[in-house]
Computed example of a mutant assay.
Amino acid sequence: MNDRAVALLEQYEIEVLRTRKGRGAILCDTQRGCLIFKEYTGREEQLRLQERVLKHLEEQGTVPAERLLATKEGALSVTDRDGVRYILKTWWEGRECNIRDREECMEAMRLLARLHGDLEFTPVFPETEETSAPVIERYLPSRDYEKRNRELKRARRFLKQRSQKTWFEIRLSAVIDPFLEEARQLCEEWKEIELAASDSGEEVPLCFCHGDYQYHNILRQDRGFFLVNFEKCQADGPVRDLYLLLRKLLEKSEWDAEWGRVLLAAYESVRPLKPYERQDLVYRLSYPEKLWKIVNFYYNSGKAWIPEKNQEKLDRLLEQEAARKKFLKLLQR
């Protein structure tokens, strides 16, 4: 980030004492504490939603989280002469949540449950002549997974047509069909559940989620945890966050079923899952997302040289598959 970008800080009601480089951003020591100034590539509507969610969390006072700061004119972002946009947020100096520390992982689960307890609300947006309230659409998992299934099918067709295959491609060709069939069946069941829910006419509370709740975005300091990077927050159920963190932690532990039970119990000690949320969690964990990621990276990369890392990830996935199925059975009891 260059000096021109730093000059944009003059548009904020702050006194910058010192700046230093962070991860793709500028950390600013100010009279209001440490702030972070970083590029923003999302939509304005998403930024306004993020600001409203974070403001609501601050009002609740339960979960320490970042806040977006507005300019002197009330704008949530600033733009340099090259058209690059930036946002300014509060920041805590700290380290990421230690995924090898089981106590910290359980604490992160309990914090997530408190976060979800605060994010069941209907946001009110101030409207002006220039802006209207963002349109909030509920997330439908089947839409994402239908798209992913189409991508898996394209990759399978490509593999079948490829005459000379590497060892990775031979291995992937041999295992992709059962995963794709599992993905197709799950997507069909998901659509039926979504259709039944819409036909029931029952009013489902509007609930938001962090959208990217993983250890990189859970910072630890002496005062406790601090949540950052809400850029992906959206109107999806709490299971989106729970699924993401649970899957990542279980992958690191070879899908240890007992550890998964302990993590889920930590979450439910604060916020018990509703029956439909538990079903949602089973479906998300059942979808072969890890395989889709491996296939998507392979299909959209150059084929002249396939990184050895691809083979390692596929081997690890296949080694963990029996343990993953075991945990899913435990979850459905």
Rank of each mutant, 00 (worst) to 15 (best):
D3G: 13
A5R: 10
A7D: 09
E10N: 15
I14N: 03
V16C: 03
L17S: 06
R20H: 06
G22T: 02
R23N: 12
R23Y: 10
C28A: 12
C28E: 05
L35C: 02
L35M: 11
T41G: 13
R48V: 01
V53N: 08
E59T: 15
E59K: 15
E59G: 14
Q60W: 02
Q60G: 10
P64H: 02
L68K: 09
L68P: 14
A70I: 00
G74R: 05
L76Y: 00
L76H: 06
S77W: 11
T79M: 13
G83M: 02
V84S: 11
T90F: 11
N98R: 08
N98H: 12
I99N: 10
E103P: 01
C105A: 13
M106H: 14
A108D: 06
R110V: 01
L112Y: 03
A113V: 01
H116K: 02
H116L: 01
E120N: 08
E120P: 10
T122D: 07
V124W: 07
F125N: 02
I136W: 09
I136G: 07
E137C: 13
E137K: 15
R138M: 10
Y139H: 13
L140A: 10
S142H: 15
K147A: 12
K147L: 11
E151Q: 15
R154F: 00
R156C: 07
R157F: 09
L159W: 06
Q164P: 00
K165H: 03
T166W: 03
T166A: 11
F168A: 03
F168P: 15
A174D: 07
I176A: 01
R184Y: 11
R184P: 04
Q185E: 09
W190F: 00
I193W: 14
I193P: 00
L195C: 09
A197M: 03
A197F: 05
E202I: 15
E203R: 15
E203N: 14
F208V: 00
G211H: 00
H216Q: 10
L219Y: 05
F225Q: 09
D236M: 07
G237W: 11
E254Y: 15
W255P: 00
D256S: 11
E258M: 10
E258Q: 13
W259M: 05
R261N: 08
L264K: 13
Y267P: 01
V270Y: 01
Y276N: 08
R278C: 01
Q279K: 14
D280N: 12
V282A: 10
Y283T: 01
E289D: 12
W292V: 04
W292Q: 05
K303F: 04
K309A: 08
K313L: 09
L314I: 03
L314P: 13
L314D: 05
D315V: 14
L317F: 00
L318R: 07
Q320G: 08
R324P: 04
K326S: 10
K329E: 10
K329F: 07
L331A: 04
